[in-house]
Amino acid sequence: METVVFYVFAALALAGALLVISFKNPVSSALSLVLTLFSTAVLFVLLLAHFIAVIQILVYAGAIMVLFLFTVMFLNLKPEALKFESKHLHFKVSALLAVLFLVGYFASLGFKKGLLLSNIGASNMDGFGTVEGVGTTLFTDYLLPFELTSILILVAIIGVVVIAKKRAN
């Protein structure tokens, strides 16, 4: 059962990711990204990260995607403004190969670590991934990083207002 759910939603996530980079229209890409993010949320549930899955849907698929769609519709792009994709096939193939080799190298390093980890039985799994468990970790061991995150958000808000406001001249 778990295996079937994993493969179905892994395939959906991959399909969504491939559609994101292949659509010409940004609105279609954004909706494909929603598919990927939802499928990843299901995989988080499989990994017993229930709170994280809810956060993923609320923040990513909710807030960030709405921001993307709002911007695309706000810009009101004309169709001719989207017809500038590179036609060079050799450029695309070489870009893909370069990325594949680089990530394959790092993935193999992680894979070795993962093989070591899969033998470790998790010690205590009660409360794992619930709001209570994540909250306890967040507000005891990681209180300072959590508070610093709010400064990051504040800086982002001020920066966005400064960037987006109309210039006087």
């Binding site: 980890l117 994540v134 967040l138 061991d141």
Partner: peptide
Amino acid sequence: FSKALGDMTGHVFMI
């Protein structure tokens, strides 16, 4: 990795 180690630090980093 968080699930494999039974440690919720990964969830915090995800947030």
